[in-house]
Design a protein around this nucleic acid. Structure first.
Lengths: 213, 213
DNA sequence: GTCTATATGAGGATAGAC
DNA sequence: GTCTATCCTCATATAGAC
């Protein structure tokens, strides 16, 4: 291809992204300099600008591609079935997808503040698409009378926070396997939405009717 | 008192802390400069060093005092009773304490990376004291046969993540009052640890014995 | 206690040679 | 595509006048 000596764009590009992700996850976006990223890759700072127009774009690319990968994986995994089945599948998917991506999860969560408004809006839009599927499952469960969920929006946020929180302590090779973590969290999720006589819970009329009969 | 003109230490000190908290919560520790903090207070950057030896100490003070206030409030609130009663009290306390302190929660969570090792250890120690109380409640509940919790450590982390996550979306004057949020989350917490016939859950022998009788 | 001024260094980003 | 060199701005922190 007539590539010049010292030309490695196909290798260097991914290395820049990996180095940036690793350093930003560890020290935070604002605390990481372009010189640090370049040093981690093994090039000079100026050469980074062959791969990103600026530092902000580097962050945005990391976060957007993480969300897009999540949504793409989701499309191929999501299926039909009862609300309970769909909720179990969603729970297990969320854990299996996120646990091997601790750095991406961390960055996507912590660096939202450092996105310029336009970029922030886009990442938020993608995140909402993901959460909306979960809320849809909860709504279905309420309709079916399978779930006692007083507020599907709040329960969605509670579940996401609980599940994503795993990434804060999970370490590969730790006490619990991914499979075991799936079991433990699925049991908790299942309990949380279970139909039970909770005082004050606003049960849907379909459930009240079913109980009366 | 013979105070010189322009001398306002009793006023300026708290203002420095408040300005730092507000700016760090919004932009992140590394992204905020001492000049910005000074400008927010209405003094010059050099004058900040009458109130903190350096930027790191300012962050550490904010995080440590937040944790110490949490633990002090906890001592006066915590009581005895059944595990279910204690869990309800803990849940409501956690929400009532944290919701009016969104900035502190955010900073204490996001800026752990920016603490120097010694300071990090201290903040972690205080955080663990708080979590240990929750785990103790869960252990008591398992002993009493009131809770079906397969792994008290994991359930502790799941509950903390779920409850602290409220601070990510709560806004004063929003759709839900603090009281309503307490109700919704207590219902979820209660369900989550409830004794139910969950396949695969490792029930304590006390519960299995109770069921057999 | 606060100011102005400054020491000292690092930051993002660009230009031009190879 | 990468390098070296550099522009320009901003950072933390300190010194000394008032």
């Amino acid at each position: 291809m007539g590539r010049k000596a010292g030309s490695h764009s196909e290798i260097t590009g991914p290395k820049v992204r990996e180095a940036a992700l690793r350093l930003i996850a560890r020290h935070g976006f604002a605390a990481v300099s372009m010189r640090q990223i370049a040093a981690e890759v093994g090039i000079q700072a100026g050469a980074l600008y062959n791969y990103t127009p600026d530092k902000q774009s580097l962050l945005f690319d990391l976060m957007r591609s993480h969300m897009e990968e999540l949504l793409e994986s989701r499309v191929t995994s999501a299926g039909g079935g009862s609300a309970l089945e769909r909720l179990e599948e969603f729970t297990r998917f969320h854990i299996r997808f996120h646990l091997p991506r601790g750095q991406q999860v961390f960055v996507s969560y912590m660096e939202l503040r450092n996105l310029e408004p336009e970029n922030f809006q886009e990442v938020e839009r993608l995140r909402r698409l993901y959460e909306d599927e979960l809320e849809g499952i909860l709504r279905q469960g309420v309709e079916e009378g399978a779930f006692a969920v007083a507020d599907t929006k709040i329960t969605t946020l509670a579940l996401i926070a609980m599940l994503t929180g795993i990434s804060n302590w999970y370490r590969e090779g730790g006490r619990l396997s991914v499979g075991r973590i799936e079991e433990l969290y699925w049991a908790m999720v299942r309990n949380m939405v279970a139909v039970l006589p909770i005082e004050g819970a606003e049960l849907p009329t379909s459930v009240l009717a079913a109980r009366a009969s």
